[in-house]
Structure formats: structure tokens, C-alpha cells
């Protein structure tokens, strides 16, 4: 028996609207002959996937990772470097990307999770900076200029062809919905309770016999791997990858999307990403000096609505999403 009731709350209506918009964009864009919006939303959903993954460690785990864009880079570079060597099959590219992400997130998580608070912020940023400089220095893969990806990832069948904008769009949409579902399942599992419990009271979790370090490390790795998928998709939309995707300001933008949407809410990162893009698009058309409005806007959001858009939609029980 499916419980439809949550759909008719304010939060449910907004969520349905947001996901529904994403689903209908290609159809509307085709009807009004504005294909530009289709790619815009495809990008937006990729950012949303990255933000959803960050939300796992940031929102639910309470760990401020200031280097999450690293995994966007890993995913995108995995596709880029594979295609550089004429390996275009996505069933080879994705395992490589996820494998590298697993190893890196294991090592980096192991180092970073030994620290707390600002030390954690700084070390996650520093580790990403290291990879950022590494990518700049490898001339073979374009260094600062980046890599052009001439051929998109291939499924080896005509049923899914990423050169077709509709196929591409709905693949991204499906991955995003999958990530949302995975988050939902994770958060409501025993694993999720430990992660959230460790955020509010680490000592208590240790006392009842959970090694918070191990749980957090696994959470850190899941988030990294999920974000890597966003990177793989991004390479297929942009047909290009450069070190810029790993710059620390990108990680900052991801954090802002999560906070704007509302931390520790399942759909928050998606609404956050949407509103973020909308605002920067509108402001940028209004004036070239749009940051002078955007900066204070950021401050106001933080000061006035600490729980983001999700917080504006009313109170919520601790377990729901």
C-alpha cells in the first residue's frame, strides 16, 4: 500500500513541481523551440547530483567538506582520458571512474576524518588543491587548457545514444532520481541513523558501540563515488574537461546549493541547485557586476534562513525527508 499523503504537503507539492519540471523540460523546450533550456537543465541536474552527494556528508553527516568538486573532476577526467586513448565504451569508463574515486575517497577520507571542525574544512580543501595542481601540470592531458572530448561515451547500442540530446537528458534525469532514491534508502537505514546520530552526538554513538570513524568513512566514500557519476555525465554534456571543475570555488558553490536548498533534506540540493542557477542567470543578464548583489544575497540567506528553502516550507519531523 503506497502512502500518497506526503505528496500533498507543502514540501510534497514543491518536490513534485521540481522533479516534474525536470522531467518535462525537453518537451516544453522542443515545443517552444528553445533547445538552449534543455542543456541548461541537463547541467543543472548534474550540479544537483553533485549537491545530493555532498548533502550525504554535509547535511546528514555534519562534515563540512570543502573539496567535493574533486570528484566531479575525477569523473570528467576519467571519461576525458579514456576517450583520449580511444576507449569510448561507457562500461569501461564508468568502472574506471568509480574505481579511482573509491580509492581516492578511501585515502583522503582516512586522512581527513582524523580531524574535526575547521581542520576538516581545510584538509579537504588542501587535498583537492593537490589534485587540482596535479591536473594542471600534466601536459599530456591538456594541463590548464583542458581536454576536448571528441566522442561521447558509447553504450554500444542504438537504444541509448548520448549524442541524442533527449537520450542524454533522460539518462541524467534517471541517474538523478536514482541518487535521490539511494539517499532516501540510506538515510532510513541503520547506517543512516548512525551517521545522523554521530552528527548530533558522537560520544553517544561510540558508547552504544558504533565506530563513527568507519561509518563516516563509508559515507564519505559513497558521497565521493556518487559525485563521480555527476562528473562522468558532465564530461558527456560539455564534451570537455579542464582543471577548473575542481577549483575550490566550485566546491564552495556546491556547499551553497546544499545550504540554500536546506541541509539534510532529500530534495533540498535539487531545489538549491535550481534556485542557484536561476538567480545567477537572471543577475548575470541584469548586470556584469552581478556578484555585488549575489554576495549580500548569500549573506542574507545564511542570516535569515539557516535551514534554506526547505526550512521555509515549515517544520518537519526528524525522520522524514
Amino acid at each position: 500500500m503506497i502512502d500518497w499523503k506526503p505528496l500533498f504537503t507543502r514540501r510534497g507539492v514543491v518536490g513534485t513541481l521540481v522533479v516534474g519540471t525536470c522531467m518535462l523540460v525537453p518537451i516544453i523546450a522542443t515545443l517552444i523551440d528553445e533547445p538552449y533550456y534543455m542543456n541548461l537543465f541537463a547541467r543543472l541536474m548534474i550540479w544537483a547530483i553533485a549537491a545530493i552527494s555532498l548533502n550525504l556528508i554535509l547535511g546528514y553527516g555534519g562534515l563540512i567538506s570543502f573539496g567535493h568538486a574533486l570528484y566531479l573532476g575525477i569523473g570528467a577526467y576519467a571519461v576525458g582520458i579514456c576517450s583520449y586513448y580511444d576507449i569510448n565504451n561507457i562500461f569501461i569508463q564508468v568502472p574506471i571512474a568509480l574505481g579511482v574515486a573509491t580509492i581516492i575517497s578511501f585515502v583522503f577520507g582516512g586522512i581527513a576524518l582524523r580531524t574535526r571542525g575547521v581542520y576538516f574544512i581545510m584538509i579537504t580543501m588542501a587535498l583537492t588543491q593537490m589534485i587540482y595542481y596535479l591536473s594542471i601540470s600534466i601536459e599530456e592531458y591538456g594541463s590548464d587548457d583542458g581536454l576536448i572530448i571528441y566522442v561521447r561515451s558509447e553504450f554500444g547500442t542504438n537504444i541509448i545514444n548520448l549524442d541524442n540530446p533527449f537520450h542524454r537528458y533522460y539518462l541524467i534525469f534517471l541517474v538523478m532520481v536514482g541518487c535521490l532514491y539511494l539517499t532516501y534508502r540510506l538515510i532510513h537505514s541503520r547506517f543512516g541513523y548512525v551517521i545522523r546520530g554521530a552528527k548530533s552526538n558522537e560520544l553517544r554513538m561510540e558508547v552504544i558501540g558504533h565506530s563513527t570513524f568507519r561509518y563516516r568513512l563509508v559515507c564519505f566514500m559513497i558521497a565521493g563515488v556518487m559525485c563521480t557519476l555527476a562528473g562522468v555525465l558532465s564530461a558527456n554534456v560539455e564534451k570537455f574537461v579542464s582543471p577548473d571543475v575542481m577549483h575550490w570555488t566550485r566546491s564552495g558553490e556546491l556547499i551553497f546549493m546544499v545550504v540554500l536548498g536546506g541541509m539534510a533534506s532529500i530534495l533540498g540540493p535539487l531545489t538549491g541547485a535550481m534556485v542557484f542557477w536561476l538567480i545567477s542567470e537572471i543577475l548575470a543578464r541584469f548586470t556584469e557586476h552581478w556578484h555585488i548583489i549575489f554576495g549580500p544575497f548569500l549573506i542574507l540567506v545564511v542570516l535569515l534562513s539557516p535551514r534554506g528553502i526547505d526550512g521555509m516550507l515549515g517544520k518537519r519531523g526528524s525522520g522524514s525527508g
Binding site: 591538456g142 583542458g146 576536448i148 571528441y150 579542464s242
Partner: peptide
């Protein structure tokens, strides 16, 4: 795609040009 221009030109930076070329 939106303005439907006939020719695109400009570009100061190599990485921007390379990203946009395709």
C-alpha cells in the same frame, strides 16, 4: 541555440575557446 547567430567569434583564452569550439 537561443540567439541563433550565424557566426561566433571572439575568445581571449585558449581553454574557453577549446571548451566552446565543439
Amino acid at each position: 541555440t537561443q540567439e541563433k547567430v550565424d557566426i561566433v567569434f571572439g575568445y581571449i583564452w585558449s581553454h574557453v575557446l577549446l571548451a566552446s569550439a565543439t
